[in-house]
Design a protein around this nucleic acid. Structure first.
Lengths: 209, 209
DNA sequence: TGCAAACTTGCAGTGACTGCAAAACAATCC
DNA sequence: GGATTGTTTTGCAGTCACTGCAAGTTTGCA
């Protein structure tokens, strides 16, 4: 065992996971998502095909690099928000926090992902499809804060809005540079917050990257 | 050719398509989605496996029975709405029209689908993932009505909200009987229209089927 | 009746993904 | 250091969704 809490084993695991994620994104960006086989990805990461599937349930998942702890972490944050904060704002903050965190670590990886998603926007949607349980978790957290039953429509809609906001923001972000992804997601969530009934005033500010 | 606009060929095509759809839903409801192979579905519909894939691009698609004309039809409706109608309302109406139409035809099929989706909520999401082009079409229609550029965030969000509304409504609908799916979708879209910032007043009316 | 276009089918192939059991490896105990 | 135990990696064999291609079959039309 180690002085820090991380054993050799854990370090190796984090390393292979990251290597697989990077390999997937790099190769997909280079020659197109479906011209890359899992076999090639595994080879690039110096690992067997079978091991690939020990880390990721699917090629899609590896491309997005789905973090299994993201759901619980966000739910945590939602429940931990101050008493004065509305359920929607609590959710909003947890989404934005997660995203800026994510971008702070894998920025250059996201630039490559952008290339891939420009060609195949459906991949983003597909990636979200494997998140049913995580969404359920978040919806329950929102429900709890809102004092609603878990069967209620509202909490589901809030997290549905969140994932739609994220997806739309990414596709918009992939379109041209000069806007920060975080800002776009924030803007999208604000629109969901205040309602889509009215067309928003057209603002096309030059954003920060 | 025929007296009506529909040729023998067209009738046969509609028939096989419907048969495949029905077979998929029936078998999936009966023994679970992934305990049914395409081979079995094709056999049930008295058609070769290869023909199955001439009609549907994937097993998922067959389960939902994705209608390739639904997208264009909805876009049409959006653009055809009266001048006083806001873009959001135009979209909202086109969604509701499409849904009630759909339910009026395949009601009992939807009851079976409900069984399947209760076990595997992710399938609904996955079905929507293959709709990128249709969503683009709708987004463009909304953009046009709103006088916005196609690259704008707002139109995407509107259709994103629509699909989220539908998905949430279906999962909620699958939970208990007594509420009409159309009503749930309408309610969800209203919430998106007026904004999610505030928790809605708790109404749990007993609905009509 | 005969031709052309559309639809169906079989076949062979690719590639994602799974379960299983053995080998390699890391942590722990003495 | 060496034996023991739990975890991770790997190979292998198999299933199944899905694709392109090149016949065969059916329908529409003159």
């Amino acid at each position: 065992m180690n002085q820090s809490g991380e054993s050799l084993r854990d370090r190796k695991k984090r390393h292979t996971r990251a290597a697989l994620e990077r390999a997937t994104v790099r190769l997909a960006a280079e020659r197109g998502y479906d011209h890359v086989t899992v076999e090639e990805i595994a080879a690039e990461a110096d690992v067997s095909v079978r091991t690939f599937f020990n880390y990721f349930a699917s090629k899609d998942e590896a491309l997005i690099g789905a973090d299994p702890e993201a759901g619980p972490r966000m739910a945590e944050r939602i429940l931990a928000a101050g008493d004065g904060v509305s359920p929607f704002d609590a959710y909003r903050s947890s989404v934005l926090a997660e995203i800026t965190d994510e971008l702070n670590h894998g920025r250059e990886l996201w630039l490559l992902r952008k290339e891939v998603l420009m060609q195949r926007p459906d991949l983003l949607m597909r990636a979200f499809a494997n998140n049913a349980e995580a969404e359920q978790l978040l919806a329950n957290a929102v429900a709890q804060r809102a004092g609603l039953s878990e069967s209620d429509l509202y909490p589901r809609l809030v997290v549905g809005a969140g994932s739609a906001a994220f997806r739309c923001a990414v596709t918009r972000w992939a379109l041209d540079d000069g806007v920060a992804l975080g800002d776009l997601v924030g803007e999208a969530l604000d629109l969901f917050g205040t309602g889509l009934a009215h067309v928003p005033p057209h603002d096309d500010k030059g954003g920060t990257s």
